[in-house]
Design a protein around this nucleic acid. Sequence first.
DNA 1: ACCGAAAAGAGAGCACCGCTCTTGCTTTGG
DNA 2: CCAAAGCAAGAGCGGTGCTCTCTTTTCGGT
Lengths: 230, 230
Amino acid sequence: MSTAQGARARARQEVTAAIKEAARGQLAAEGAAKLSLRAVARELGMVSSALYRYFPSRDDLLTALIIDAYDSLGEAAERARDAAADAAPEARWVAVCEAVRGWALDRPHEYALIYGSPVPGYSAPQTTVPPAARVGMVLIGIVRDAHQGPGLTALPLPAGLRPEAARLAADLAPDLPAEAAVALVAAWAQLFGLVGFELFGQFNRVVEDRETFFRHAAGRLAEGVGLGRG
Amino acid sequence: MSTAQGARARARQEVTAAIKEAARGQLAAEGAAKLSLRAVARELGMVSSALYRYFPSRDDLLTALIIDAYDSLGEAAERARDAAADAAPEARWVAVCEAVRGWALDRPHEYALIYGSPVPGYSAPQTTVPPAARVGMVLIGIVRDAHQGPGLTALPLPAGLRPEAARLAADLAPDLPAEAAVALVAAWAQLFGLVGFELFGQFNRVVEDRETFFRHAAGRLAEGVGLGRG
DNA sequence: ACCGAAAAGAGAGCACCGCTCTTGCTTTGG
DNA sequence: CCAAAGCAAGAGCGGTGCTCTCTTTTCGGT
């Protein structure tokens, strides 16, 4: 247990958390590119060099924030799925999509951190992969439940895509039809296209009632993976 | 005419172009966040302060690059549309989508500049709006042609979305059915979700045959706006 | 209980950044 | 022809990420 270890380790965890908290504050205020280690240190009353005992570089701090953000978003998606556990698959799909959108609207800068442009030069380490997959897993799970329950509607699968579809299905969801796996990956990317456009201002002066628009689009995404009307 | 003015004005245009060119080089090498005016100046053999005669700030340089990128992408989309002028609407749609993807794969950093996270603090001035709309205009045009020619397939439009759909159609394409306008905006956002996910690495170790996958997804997007099989 | 090792903070300093201001030089246009 | 405008250069300000050294604190094994 982490609580059983010495005062030193506990203090380290607390300081680490405080640094991330302050960094998140800066992130929300100024954006990732202006996240300054010195400013974080100032806010915490330490000297900048002391921060390097906790994060070897600014990029490592960013990586930690990225992982936290993926986890936070993943949790939000999972909570939405569980809260709609009794609803029809299509409704559960829409609920998860709306949870993703809501999370993004609440924390635009954290969303930008994980789904915006990759930070300069920096390439995400492997540790970010599992947290990043959580939302996708939730979406896959909903389709899997529908497949084992009410069933999925038929989806097209051109011959040229068959090898890729088989690979995809084998990797992601061996129990699903290959065409559903393809549709899932596409819908997954398209979901973040919708959220990103709204968040980054592409819908300004275009879409007004974004809530309604998004719910409709998410519903059509659900149809696209074989949910609903089945 | 721009060629008729004095040597001074011509020199100014050449230097401005050289600055943007060098900046684009840095962009490709290091990413937008590390674009350094001093480095650009060094590369051009000038002193950093001299750059401020051409761009009042780093953000203004970025704005210029953003506008150029939007225009370049818009031209690519228009060229693809014109090259496929004789094809069926669905094929023309897919051709334009593939042009967008191809442009993005060729210039990932410029794509990130316009469709990635907004740059820190900086909010895009109104001058970027018309260039940014060009791709959307191309997509609208294809659907309009199909509507006036072979016709569009029926699309659902829930009652709650009717007001927003009417507004959208009035703004974007008064001659199109309201439900087509809604579907167009959604497909537009979803297209960039697909491209962005591929470009920013979200498809790593997930999608292998991205070319084929994308063509299929673009085709389904076309169906989603009422093209094809009509 | 002590003592050496490990961890943590503080401070100075390096190289770089965006941006401003002042100083001269060159081109331009009335 | 000469004043005005455009331009390059240099110095300098406050900020950044990061490194190095030095001191203090804490921990674990004997």
